[in-house]
Design a protein around this nucleic acid. Structure first.
Length: 568
RNA sequence: UGCCCGAUGGUGUAAUUGGCAACACGUCUGACUCUGGAUCAGAAGAGUCCAGGUUCGAACCCUGGUCGGGCAACCA
């Protein structure tokens, strides 16, 4: 149960192990991750990346990166770069096996010629509309095209002229000759090539016909020696076509790739489709593809997620064929688990309330020892300045605290982390608004951390920052982008943006201990008692340091106070 | 009313292939704590979509339903 080798296998591993036992494809395991460069990668892709590269590693095989770039009208170089960057960042390596479906355009063309010669493909002169109409419906068979029985020679001639650019876009296609009455729509003479006078990000203008997914994908797998072609469930119905194309090219008993489908990842309170994510970007609802609220890999990275946390998340969600919705709490658990071990602790007050220690000498200052990471002694200690005026968190004080509130209140005592025990003597309010603006407290000099009476029991420990030494930091507090568990579950006429959370981003200025100013973009720290934060790589400048909250700490007080709130 | 796939605690995944449901997250106790974090100890929570059948024995096999998802781009 604890050794990965003893852990039960998911259904894909079971298939692979059976193939290995049967010496299929000489017991090789070779997978691939085949993104289309038309958008940024998201956490769902991360699951697939971890799966494919993980399988390659586990079975001593290989994993290729292949860009599925058969549609020049949607694909861009920018996406290629971001995708490679994200995969590397996640910790995976395709070594020298970087491929593009467009690398195979020639090969694919030659093979298409072969199918035509074998009377397995034909050129159809009809319009898109005609073809669509003839395809039938899932419950009604399709009609054969009037061009279906053209001679091989005519097909050859026409297809070559399509390639030579003699016809305008949309005037002709090459179709596989299969079965217009198949109950599987994808077998009703699917289109193999369309005419597209478009410039391709890699092949430029050398082609004006481009292969369709079904024709390109399986053959690319074949050319690369892929053994297990893993994709998501919506391609399940394509598998007969995947196999049919291979049947035309592969001899019985020879090497052949195999398509296996698994259920894609869904996360509660988020959307995962590239189209919808693109919409959020284009409409300016978020701050680009790497907005820290986005489920994109670049967004999670900017938010402060670590590759390790994403990998362990992918591990935990498992692989199966049934539709699933993973609780975001699991993702959050995964980062906390990782960050707890790794990140240094710092004191920072997000919503400052001034506290004056009336019996602490005016101009006295102290340096107090603070532990960097209680989970990791090797991280050592640092010093934090202490003085008469400090800031504490506003919500660590209540004028009329309930029994279970273990923090500061009139007449109450609490410990200041690494410092003294203080007692609240007086509450100062703004006479106009009634808002608490300052607390007058006394400190007990005997209770300094490490001193004899420091073991005195108090209800709670607060984080704080010396006012004189405090530095301003910008803090960005993120919450879920959508308020509905399934943003797509909306009534007619409304779309997924209906439940957008207006408070998904709150920007405030906090007060931080001086050591925090040393943090560099991407650095991750725990603000003690508050959460994990990372230095934003986009808005941080030499004058202003910006922190993104990756995830708050688990907060059992919030749970208590929320549940009593609800009861009322 | 065609075809393909799926159905196991709140969520996700297991059950070594027919031996009487486990793990993780979440939830709830309690201990500990100079983070209401972490850690530790423990608990509740499913009898496996339904109905039949085969079997000494079924979450696993068979039959028939039910429910959910997918399929009609010259997208991937």
């Amino acid at each position: 149960m604890n050794q990965s080798s003893e852990r039960s296998l998911n259904f894909i591993e079971q298939i692979i192990e059976e193939d290995i036992r049967n010496n299929k494809n000489e017991s090789r395991v070779h997978t691939r991750f085949p993104p289309e460069p038309n958008g940024y990668l998201h956490i769902g892709h991360a699951k697939s990346i971890c799966l494919n590269f993980g399988l390659g590693k586990k079975y001593n095989g290989l994993t290729n990166l292949r860009f599925d770039d058969t549609n020049p009208t949607k694909e861009e170089e920018e996406y290629v770069k971001s995708i490679m960057n994200d995969i590397r960042w996640l910790g995976f390596d395709w070594e020298d096996r970087l491929y593009y479906a467009s690398d195979y355009f020639n090969h694919l063309y030659e093979w298409a010629l072969k199918l035509i010669r074998n009377d397995k493909a034909y050129v159809d002169d009809q319009t898109v509309e005609d073809i669509r109409r003839q395809r039938g419906t899932p419950t009604r068979p399709g009609l054969e095209s009037p061009y279906r029985s053209r001679s091989v020679d005519e097909n050859l001639d026409l297809f070559q002229r399509m390639k030579n650019g003699e016809f305008p876009d949309g005037t002709r296609v090459l179709r596989a000759k299969i079965d217009m009455s198949s109950p599987n729509m994808h077998m009703r003479d699917p289109v193999m090539y369309r005419i597209l006078h478009a410039s391709h990000h890699r092949t430029g203008d050398t082609w004006c016909i481009y292969p369709m997914y079904d024709w390109a994908h399986g053959q690319s797998d074949y050319l690369e020696g892929i053994t297990h072609s893993i994709c998501t469930l919506e391609f399940e119905i394509h598998r007969p076509l995947y196999d049919w194309f291979l049947d035309q090219l592969v001899k019985e008993g020879e090497y052949r790739p195999r398509q296996i489908e698994f259920a894609r990842l869904n996360l509660s309170y988020t959307v995962m489709s590239k189209r919808k994510l693109l919409e959020l970007v284009k409409e300016g609802i978020v701050d680009g593809w790497n907005d820290p609220r986005m489920p994109t890999i670049s967004g999670l990275r900017r938010r402060g997620y670590t590759p390790e946390s994403i990998r362990s998340f992918a591990d935990r969600v498992g692989v199966a064929k049934r539709d699933n919705v993973i609780d975001v709490a699991l993702l959050e658990y995964s980062v906390r688990e990782d960050l707890n071990k790794k990140s240094d602790r710092r004191l920072a007050v997000l919503d400052p309330l001034k506290v004056t220690l009336t019996n602490y000498p005016e101009d006295r200052e102290e340096k107090l020892d603070a532990i960097n990471n209680p989970e990791d002694d090797s991280k050592g200690k640092r010093q934090i300045p202490f003085s008469r005026e400090i800031y504490i968190e506003r919500n660590d004080f209540m004028e009329d605290p309930p029994r279970k509130f273990f923090r500061l209140g009139p007449g109450r005592e609490v410990r200041l982390k690494y410092a003294y025990i203080i007692k609240c003597e007086e509450v100062i309010k703004d006479p106009a608004t009634g808002q608490v603006v300052e607390l007058k407290c006394t400190y007990d000099p005997e209770t300094k951390s490490g001193m004899t009476r420091s073991d005195k029991k108090v209800k709670g420990t607060l984080h704080w920052v010396s006012a004189k030494h405090a530095r301003d930091i910008e803090v960005r507090l993120y919450d879920r982008l959508f308020m509905q568990e399934d943003p797509n579950d909306v009534e007619e006429g409304k779309d997924f943006k209906y439940s957008l959370n207006p408070d998904s981003l709150k920007i405030t200025t906090g007060k931080a201990e001086p050591a925090l100013l040393e943090a560099r973009p991407g650095d991750k720290v725990q603000f003690e008692r508050t959460g994990y934060f990372c230095v934003d790589s986009k808005y941080t400048t030499s004058e202003r340091i910006v922190f993104n909250r990756t995830v708050p700490l688990r907060d059992s007080w919030a749970k208590i106070s929320n549940s009593t709130h609800k009861k009322k």
